[in-house]
Design a protein around this nucleic acid. Structure first.
Length: 494
RNA sequence: GCCCCUAUCGUCUAGUGGACUAGGACGCAGCCCUUUCAAGGCUACGACCGGGGUUCGAAUCCCCGUAGGGGCACCA
């Protein structure tokens, strides 16, 4: 358990749809902040203007809120360390790049990206060398550099990586990561367009925003030594670094690609938060599921937010890559649906009914909740299990109306007899109807599945449904009798 | 090619030198319950990547392989 308040941040780029990895990192950030009484911050890393996608930032904010990961500081909520959008912090980065140059840890570079670099890189590849910046501008004198800049020559600022020695970076999950400095590159800190690269922006912001724990994907491990060198060049204290494992596609072979994402969508799954919402997943299910990929909890796998905040620990995070298992998402989603109060579930189901053009009556909706709750894997399953409650007609399939082992004529007779019995009852209360119908089953010598099956299809329009008599009671006497009458007519026409 | 990371049931994981006959969860199979479908209950199947060390003792520590993953941009 952390004792000092932690300041954590999720720092996504608005370059596409918000995905699972972002959600999980944000969750851990949130848990750590809440557990320690600290703050969770949203920072938008939009320094790659070309890749910025309209609406992506909003999708991130909506996604975090939908998940219940409300941030204490961010672009749309403010905070005393703002602005929280990197394109609005240009001057801060220029200032810091200047500091590094003055300290001898960075230098202006006038190499043209397309011509020089590509050529050099290709030559290096040919010679089977590790592609790297060759250091052409590294030793230009400050005076010459200043003159060229004054002349308006386009330039970047590169970090001056020491050539000798070893950088030892410390990751909380992986321990010391040693890298020979000669393997490291003079990376660009400030681009020609005046905006910083991730390397400068993230380091400066994490410091300025007083971030205590940096949680990010392990794809950053390669540039981790660079980042540590930048922090040290500034003379700042380092945050606690935690490089989370990546998610692998279900087969375990490689990261999720567009292809797999499309594949997943086919069977009702997705790695995009927005999709998960429309697919009928709950924030609780998604959170619980993603939390457990990369966080080892011994037992009691089903956790709500409160429990996660209590039990979370950066010490029990795991470093190995985790294959996505959508069946497990289904399980957690279904489990959390069952944990919801009836009122809560009803409210969440409503949009899915309206999406299908069904008008729901609140009173009825609340009544069907106990009947459908344990049958729902996703919220949108409410249509297949409960859509018929809100339809005027159910249009059963004629074949489905024929009971197993019987023909259309026999089935019609059973339906007629059932109609007779049910219409003779004073009430369609489920206990009353059931005992009357069971008596009929007894005397008929048929199986309950045969007789009840016909009724089920007649009344609900489907072969699979919630418990028959409870459903009939909710549908109401008149409507049930009418639907059975309709079924008889269908059977007789066959 | 180079660098880095990782390695326990099919999958997610517990395990921090003796409590391991390696625990849990998902999935899968069977049974019970049962008007369909679920849910629930019970049972079964199922793993320490390989080889060397260290140690009285290794899933746990070290080395070497191997396999998988990630990265090598004026993208993040």
């Amino acid at each position: 358990m952390q004792t000092k308040p932690a300041r954590t941040r999720i720092a996504p780029s608005p370059t596409g749809h918000m995905h699972l990895g972002t959600a999980r990192t944000a969750l851990y950030d949130y848990l750590l902040a809440k557990q320690t009484g600290g703050q969770f911050i949203l920072r938008i890393e939009d320094t790659d203007v070309k890749r910025t996608v309209a609406g992506a930032e909003q999708e991130i904010m909506d996604g975090l809120r939908w998940l219940g990961l409300d941030y204490d500081e961010g672009p749309d909520v403010g905070g005393k360390f703002g602005p929280y959008r990197q394109t609005e912090r240009r001057e801060i980065y220029r200032h810091h790049a200047k500091i590094l140059i003055d300290k001898g840890h960075a230098y202006p570079c006038f190499c043209k990206p397309d011509e020089l670099e590509k050529k050099k890189r290709q030559e290096q590849m040919k010679r089977k060398e590790n592609p790297h910046y060759d250091g052409t501008c590294r030793n230009i004198s400050p005076d010459d550099a200043a003159k060229r800049i004054a002349n308006g020559e386009a330039h970047t600022v590169r970090f001056k990586m020491p050539h000798d020695g070893v950088t030892i970076a410390h990751d909380h999950l992986r321990g010391e990561i040693k890298t020979e400095n000669k393997q490291l590159n003079d990376q660009v800190l400030l681009k020609t367009d005046g905006l910083p690269t991730y390397h400068l922006a993230a380091i400066v912001d994490d410091h300025e925003m007083q971030i205590t724990h940096v949680l990010r994907g392990s794809e950053w491990l390669g540039t981790f030594p660079l980042h540590v060198n930048i922090v040290r060049a500034f003379g700042w204290d380092e945050p606690i670094w935690i490089h989370l494992s990546v998610f692998l596609k279900p087969s375990g072979k490689g990261k999720m690609s567009k292809r797999e994402a499309a594949e997943a969508m086919k069977d009702g799954h997705s790695i995009f938060i927005k999709d998960m919402q429309t697919l009928g997943f709950t924030p609780e299910g998604v959170l619980n599921w993603s939390a457990l990929m990369g966080w080892g909890v011994a037992e009691d796998d089903v956790l709500n937010m409160k429990q996660m905040i209590e039990r979370f620990s950066i010490d029990s995070l795991t470093a190995s890559p985790a294959a996505i298992n959508f069946q497990r998402l289904d399980h957690f989603n279904a489990t959390h649906i069952r944990l919801l109060t009836s009122e809560d579930l009803a409210a969440r189901l409503k949009p899915y009914f309206s999406r299908e053009g069904l008008t729901v009556n609140d009173e009825t909706l609340l009544k069907i909740i106990p009947l459908i709750r344990e049958r729902l894997t996703t919220l949108d399953d409410c249509i297949s299990f409960g859509g018929f409650f809100f339809k005027e007609d159910v249009n059963p399939n004629s074949e489905d109306l024929i009971a197993k082992g019987l023909d259309a004529k026999q089935s019609a007779e059973i339906a007629k007899k059932s109609l007779q019995i049910l219409s003779g009852l004073s009430s369609i209360d489920h206990a009353v109807a059931e005992s009357a119908m069971r008596a009929y089953v007894e005397e008929s010598g048929l199986g309950p599945n045969q007789i009840f099956g016909i009724l089920r299809v007649a009344v609900t329009g489907q072969k699979v449904s919630p418990p028959l008599f409870e459903s009939m009671e909710i549908i109401g006497r008149e409507k049930c009798l009418q639907r059975i009458q309709n079924a008889i007519e269908i059977l007789e026409k066959m």
